[in-house]
Design a binder for these strands. Sequence first.
DNA 1: TGTTAGTTCTG
DNA 2: AGAACTAAC
Length: 479
Amino acid sequence: MQLMWFRTDLRVQDNSALAAAMSSGPTVALYLISPAQWLAHDDAPSKVDFWLRNLKSLAGELGKLNVPLLVREADDWSAAPQVIGELCQQLQISTVHVNEEYGVHESRRDQGVADALDTLGIHFNSQLDQIFFKPGSVLTKSGTYFQVYSQFRKVCYQRLHSALPSVIATPKAQDPLAINSDAVPEQVPGFATPSDTLRQLWPAGEAEARRRMDDFAAEQIDFYQSARDFPAKPGTSQLSAYLAAGVISPRQCLHAALAANQGEFDSGNIGVVTWINELLWREFYKHILVGYPRVSMHRAFRPETEALAWRDAPQELKAWQEGRTGLPIIDAAMRQLLATGWMHNRLRMIVAMFLTKNLLIDWREGERFFMRHLIDGDLAANNGGWQWSSSTGTDSAPYFRIFNPLSQSQKFDPDGRFLRQWLPELVGLNKTNIHNPAAMGGLFGIADYPAPIVDLSKSRARALAAFKSLPHFAGEEAS
DNA sequence: TGTTAGTTCTG
DNA sequence: AGAACTAAC
C-alpha cells in the first residue's frame, strides 16, 4: 500500500507525488492538521480556512479516484514522525510519497519523518513539484546560488529551452479500497473563520483555479504588462492563493501561458512574457530560501543592514496595520488586505516601502503582519518582497530608491477609483485632492480622516541618513 | 519596479 | 512658467 501525504499541493491534476504513488500501487491519502505549527508560522486564519475548504474539495476529487483521504493531527511537526509511522504500520504502507517543500522547518520535518520510516523499513519518496527546477540545479558558473534575479532568469530560460517541464497526467481511478475517508474539519482552533465576503472572493477547488487560469490566459494575459500595475483594474491573474496552496501548479500556469504565445516564453506576446517572468520571480525566491536559509530565520540577506537603527514606533506601526496613516493609498491598500486577505502587488511594494523607509520600522514587522493576514502568504515570496522593499535582500531596491506614496498613488490610480473603493470617507473628493486630502488645508479637512502621521520629505531624508550611516555599508550606484 | 533638486530649453 | 533633462541619493 502507498501513502500520499498532501501538504501545500491540494490537487489531483499535475501532482507529481500523487502520480508516483498511484502508479506504484493502491494508494491512501493523508493530511495533517498542525495548529501549533501553523500559529508558529504566522499562517493567516483566512489561509488556514482556504486550506480546509480546498481539502474538502480535494477529498471529493480523490473520491472519484477511489483514494480515501485520512485526516490526522500532529499539533507540532515534531509529532509528525510518530503519527505517520503509526499510520504506516496500521495500513502496512511500503512507501510514503510527498512533494518537496523548501522551508527550514519543512525540510527538518521531512527528514525526521524519513528517518523514522527508515527504521520501520518504509520508503520515503519525495518529488520536485512546487517549482520548475530543483534548488541547487540552477547555479552560477562558480557553483553558488544566484543573488541577482536577471542572471538567474537567464539560466532558467536556457533550461526551459532545453527541457520544458511537462504536465503530468491525472491518474486513473484505482479499485475501491475498504478504507473510509475522514471528515475534513470546518475549523481549526486558534484560526477564526473569516467573513463570508472574504470566503466568497476565494472559492475553493481545482475547478475554480483552472477556470481562473483559463479565463486569465484567454482574456487578460495580453494586457497583463500594461494593466498589472493599476490596482483598480482586474489586470492580475488572482491565482496567488491557489498557487500557494498548490490547488494549481506552476507547470499548469506555464503551459497555459505558453499556449497563448505559440510556445514562447522569452519573446512574442509581451503580456505572456511578463507573466512568466513573475512565475520565475516565485521560482527565484524559493531557490534563495534554500541557498540562503538565514533569510527565513529573521535575518537580513545583506548582513551589513542588520545594524540599521530601525525605529520602535508602536503607534505608527498600529496606524499602518489598521489603515489610518492619513495617506490614502497606504490606508486603502491596508484595508484591502484586511477585508480580502489579498493586496495588489504594486500596493504591497508601496506599503512595504512606506513602513520600512518613511516610518523606518523593521521589515520583519511588516513581513509578520502580511503573513498573518494574507490568504496567499508564502514564506519565500513574502520574505523576498519585504527584503526587496527594505533594501536588505538579494537584488533589492537600492536604498535611495524610495517610493513617494503620493506620486505612486497619482501614477497608478490616476482617477482615484481604487481609493474611493476602500475609503468611503473620501468618496466626495475629486481625482486631484483624493490622493492628498491634507493639501486642501485645515478648513477643508475631512471629518473622520486623519492627517498624515509622517512628513514624507523629512522621513525620506531620515531613511537615507540611516542607510548612509551604516558601518561598512556599500551604497549602490544608481542604475 | 524612483524621487528630488537643480539646470537648461521653450514659448 | 513649465517642460525636458541630469545628477545624486
